[in-house]
Nucleic acid binder design. Structure first.
Lengths: 286, 286
DNA sequence: TTGCTCCTCACGTCACGTGAGGTGGC
DNA sequence: TTGCTCCTCACGTCACGTGAGGTGGC
């Protein structure tokens, strides 16, 4: 029989750890002195402790280990648990490797002089499907024509009283980005369906499980830089493009911002334009 | 300006997360209504939020991110942080890969019929250096000669009143394991130095930063199985042997157990022998 | 007697998730 | 008025580490 300190010393398991295992019932001391509450461990308990440590080293949680030890399950079950664990660890490794790639990408961004341009932070998030009033057309994306199209869909939504409190969106349906005239779709989100007319279509706009996104602040003439950063990120991180580019107009002046608050809160109404670029992506090889 | 729910929705950041970032001062809402305590966020804040999310995805902690954002440091500093982070993630990956190897080893142990033999749980821990009274000799490790040698060092330690409360140890100095006569060293730990005599040497026994260890319960004639399991584990997990095998006699009958408690606590004195095998190891390629 | 070891609370960790219980705006 | 959204506590997570404050054994 060993006092906790000795047992701790030659097992290389901290006293606190042993007490913790006692507390959760994972490894009870063979004997506890009723007067002093001193814990006494027997050499018999070493195999169990070692089994606990070995399973912990495989990444099992203590509660799970308790079940593994006490139900003493069949080899087949044990094999199942191990394979599950293996899958989890493999996933973890993939995750950390992807993280490494992101870090490398960021480092090389610093190495290159591009660090002197405003830095863009690329973030991956989902894009929800939603109902929208939309107009799709071939126009010059830089022209006033786009503004007119937005006015049209906004008028449509206002007329039917179905404008949802989310920002307007523009989708670039051509694979390539900006070269004069191209196929774009302007739209505003709706709270409920309304009958379309000759110009405006009401449709569900599909979502994406993952899109690489950047926020661009300032005029639209510099959106190209944001898009370039987005493309570099997507390539550098082993993704491939999986859908048309979306532009979300988070702030674009005071007009048409039905989803904004009353004047009292328009503290930032004089600020610059804020636009999010969303590029649907998927992992290469999956 | 957006209410927290809307801001949450199109950033794909949970409301609770935004409140948390507010609480720790990482991302304060542009405006908080003094009457309702409602939080209002501005589109201006999206770049900062995206920066937070991007850094978090690289694995930085929130407190660290706060420092990175508010001190806005030089490119050189940022590069240093990233390289540090990269090193940590690489370490993490190596750790998870080693874990994968251990899981694989355990799986293949199950696949082979060896699973029917008593399962040994191999654990890696340090072996402390310590002072000991020792006798080193070429003898047959299975013979009574070993017992006599232990009696001798125990007598020596008792005579000088320097016996430490740790179990006796035997070291196999030959590279190979058990084949009749070999070079072994028996020893008991001491609390203080004492002058050696013709037979007994007093010396510091070196420690090891890592040893693969198994607990064997039962007679010594089956220790070979434990050793075999140890060797398989060491090979299967890409380690190489880095020192002589050690046998620690954690329980070996009631005699000579000066580190045990009075009779009242000898509840397990009739139990089987308990022995730990310790094989110093190091990682291949490091 | 003095260290040394042991004990039991109790709190901290990290980034939120999950209710409980209550209020403001359409 | 009824939902819906927002608010503030407060507790839980996971495997312990770190004191604080006190006691038993040589």
């Amino acid at each position: 029989m060993f006092k906790i300190g000795d047992f701790s010393k030659f097992t290389c398991v901290s006293v606190k750890q042993l007490r913790h295992y006692d507390e959760i019932g994972l490894l009870r001391p063979r004997l506890v002195d009723p007067y002093t509450s001193y814990r006494y461990y027997s050499a018999d308990q070493l195999p169990r402790l070692n089994r606990i440590l070995a399973l912990r080293d495989l990444g099992f949680g203590l509660e799970q280990i308790a079940r593994l030890l006490d139900n003493d399950l069949s080899l087949e079950q044990m094999r199942g648990m191990l394979k599950l664990r293996r899958a989890e660890v493999e996933k973890q490794v993939r995750h950390e490797l992807a993280r490494l790639t992101r870090i490398e990408a960021r480092l090389s961004q610093i190495e290159q002089a591009e660090a002197t341009v405003p830095p863009y932070d690329v973030v991956v998030h989902a894009v929800e499907a939603h109902l929208a009033a939309a107009i799709r057309q071939r126009v010059d994306a830089d022209s006033d024509a786009v503004t007119h199209l937005f006015e049209e869909v906004e008028r449509f939504a206002a007329r039917h009283r179905v404008r949802a409190a989310s920002p307007p969106v523009m989708i670039y349906h051509d694979a390539e980005y900006r070269d004069g005239e191209q196929e774009i779709e302007v739209m505003v989100p709706l709270t409920a369906a309304a009958p379309g007319d000759g110009q405006v279509t009401v449709r569900m706009v599909g979502g994406h499980t993952a899109a690489a996104c950047v926020i661009h602040t300032g005029g639209y003439d510099q959106l190209e830089m944001a898009f370039a950063a987005l493309l570099r990120w997507v390539e550098g991180n082993q993704y491939t493009i999986d859908g048309p580019l979306r532009e979300v107009f988070l702030r674009f002046g005071s007009s048409g911002e039905g989803y904004q608050l009353p004047d009292a809160f328009l503290a930032d109404s004089t600020g610059e334009f804020v636009t999010e670029l969303q590029l649907p992506i998927k992992k290469i090889d999956s």
